[in-house]
Structures are given as structure tokens and as C-alpha cells.
Design a protein around this nucleic acid. Structure first.
Lengths: 120, 120
DNA sequence: ATGATAGTTGAGTAAATATTCAACTATATT
DNA sequence: AATATAGTTGAATATTTACTCAACTATCAT
């Protein structure tokens, strides 16, 4: 069997399948964005923050108490979530109140929880 | 204001909110499993593998060609996905064929793609 | 049996990242 | 103005992890 045209260390076993799937694959950017989204919620702390904010608008200090973590740590994660556009904040006096700003997050959580519960 | 009972470096601003949210929060295990699930699909390579397998059953060599990566690298990621129970495999001759083994993954991808496209 | 190919696996390396710590800004109170 | 608190931020550290490399097993063809 002839060496394949692609730069990988094996021969093509099913060229038809490979070409068909390659044709249907979204581009690199799409996968990067998709992975970035899941990576964003793929952290226990951020999961807990997002879940808490889905219940109620909260300031950094409230969240620190709910998570039992330092303000600094929570603030760092909130900054990450804000940069990614899944939470937004408003300032009121000395406090900064955060809220969820993305409907998809809740849906992802719902399916994620389904996944966990349906795994015998 | 009295120092709070929780071991964090700030005072409670809204004790009612904190207690209410704490009451609704799932336990630690749940968040760990949830985060692990999203972490699993929070990687470009694994996203691409799962997307490809959603199109068609494929062997490691096929996937290596689709992804343009070494067999070793793909095999490592497949082992991770297998350990987590989102793909399964069957051996046939020298080849090992992988398929998706979790309906939730496709749903998560759908919502993820929605998220990406609905962002301005 | 010998050689070739598909796939796996463990160790090593490099990159990414979550938390800590300390310094900082901004706002409110006295 | 001085002090205290809420929150942010950059640097450092420690942990995680994706990929490479080399060695290995299993299967097929001759």
C-alpha cells in the first residue's frame, strides 16, 4: 500500500472514510473555540462560581464565602469568566456584583448533570 | 460587622444570599465530575476526535490521518476518552475501531456550536 | 519463522494554568 | 485627612497535561 499524502506516521486504512470525515470537519478555529468554551467550564472552581451565579447575583465577597476561597482566587477566576463573556458585572459602592451572562452555560450544566446521573 | 464563620479573608456582605446559595449548591463530588466531563471535551484534539467519531466509526490510523497527528498521540487521547466512557472500541484483525459511546457528548457539542455562532 | 504494520504504553519534556502572596486602586466612614 | 474594606492584578510556584520518543504487543502476509 502506498504511503499516504498526509504527514502522519501510518498508512491510510480507509481512505474513503478519511476523506468523507475530513470534508465534514469544521475548521480549526471552530474547534479551538469549542474547546476553549468547554475548558472554561472544565474547572471545579469556575463550575461552582457559575452555578452560584445562576442562583443569584453575588459580589466577590459573597462568592468567596460560598466557595470558601480567598477573594483573590475568586477574583482571578471571575476575570477569566468575564473575559470570555459568560459573566458580567456591575459596580455599586465598594462592591462588584456578578451575574451570569450566557444562556448556553445553564444548558450545558443541565446536560452535564444528566450525564453524571445517567452513568450507572 | 463581625468576622464571618467561614475561613475566608473577608466579611459576609449578604449572609442571606450566601446561606441560600450554599443550601442549593450540589456537593463537591458533583462539581468534580461535572468539571471532569467538561475538561475531557475541553481540548481541541479530543473535540476533533469525538466529532470525527460522531460521523463514522474509525480506526486509529484513520483518525491519525484525519487529525494529521501521530498514532501515538491519537492513541493516548483515545485511551483517555475510553477511560472516561465516552468512546468504546472493537478489535478487528490488526485494527481497533472506535465509536462514540455517549449521547450527551453530541448534545454538548450542539449547544457549544450554538454558543460560538450566537456570539455576535 | 520472518518481516511488516496497527496499536499501546511509560517516561520525559514543554506548555498551560490554578492558587498564593503582596502590592495596589477605589470607595465609604469617621 | 485617615482608616478600613472590596476588589483587582502581576509575579511566583506548583500542578496538570499534551505530545514526543522509543520500546513493546498483536496480528497478518509471505
Amino acid at each position: 500500500m502506498a504511503r499516504n499524502e498526509f504527514s502522519c506516521d501510518c498508512n491510510i486504512i480507509h481512505q474513503d472514510a478519511v476523506l468523507e470525515v475530513l470534508d465534514k470537519m469544521p475548521n480549526e478555529d471552530t474547534f479551538n473555540h469549542l474547546a476553549d468554551l468547554f475548558k472554561l467550564i472544565g474547572d471545579t472552581t469556575r463550575c461552582r462560581i457559575l452555578f452560584a451565579l445562576d442562583q443569584k447575583e453575588m459580589c466577590v465577597c459573597d462568592l468567596s464565602n460560598v466557595l470558601n476561597m480567598t477573594k483573590s482566587s475568586v477574583s482571578h477566576q471571575l476575570a477569566t469568566l468575564r473575559r470570555s463573556g459568560v459573566v458580567k458585572c456591575r459596580k455599586s459602592g465598594k462592591e462588584v456584583y456578578y451575574t451570569l451572562d450566557d444562556d448556553h452555560i445553564v444548558k450545558l450544566f443541565e446536560i452535564g448533570l444528566e450525564h453524571i446521573n445517567h452513568k450507572n
